[in-house]
Write a protein that binds this DNA or RNA. Structure first.
Length: 152
DNA sequence: GCCAACGTTGGC
DNA sequence: GCCAACGTTGGC
């Protein structure tokens, strides 16, 4: 099993939206590195740190899980979507997405500042590739954050 | 709202 | 294939 951090701006899609929807289609990712994770690496059962970016403060708020592995992002084919991409074709899609569901909310949120202040977390992808919306998380990092968040 | 970091585009 | 211009992300 692998671990990941997914960023979302709460003004566009928040943890509470995920709770309400029960399952989220993680569409709209338009970065090749993140696309490769979605298409090739992220598997059903992988655990996700759900991160609110551009927030006050930006923080990890909960744990989610992958329920469907990579499949073509249909919003890239939809002319009416803001995520439409004319270069992506039905028989040769460029962009991929997964589905996720919420598992547990952290008892306390872990802010970016908390992460920066924790030496064991200094190599997190979140810090190293600050603008990537999907980053890998190590087993160790995942369990440190669970614990900091007040989960078993 | 500013701006640094960095990915993408397109002219050459 | 280089690189300047431009657009986007996201912390602050």
């Amino acid at each position: 099993m692998s671990y990941w951090l997914f960023k979302s701006e709460p003004s566009s899609y928040s943890w509470d939206d995920l709770i309400f929807d029960k399952i989220a289609e993680w569409d709209g990712v338009r970065n090749y590195k993140a696309r490769n994770f979605l298409r090739d690496e992220i598997q059903v059962g992988d655990q996700i740190l759900f991160y609110h970016s551009n927030s006050k403060p930006s923080c990890i708020v909960g744990i989610a899980e992958v329920v469907r592995s990579g499949y073509p992002d249909f919003t890239a084919l939809d002319k009416t979507s803001n995520h439409f991409d004319s270069k992506s074709l039905p028989d040769n899609p460029i962009w991929f997405m997964v589905d996720i569901k919420p598992i547990e909310k952290l008892l306390h949120e872990i802010s970016l500042k908390d992460i920066k202040n924790t030496s064991e977390l200094k190599d997190m992808g979140l810090l190293k590739y600050a603008r990537l919306s999907i980053t890998p998380v190590s087993h160790n990092e995942f369990f440190i954050i669970r614990k900091m968040g007040g989960l078993e």
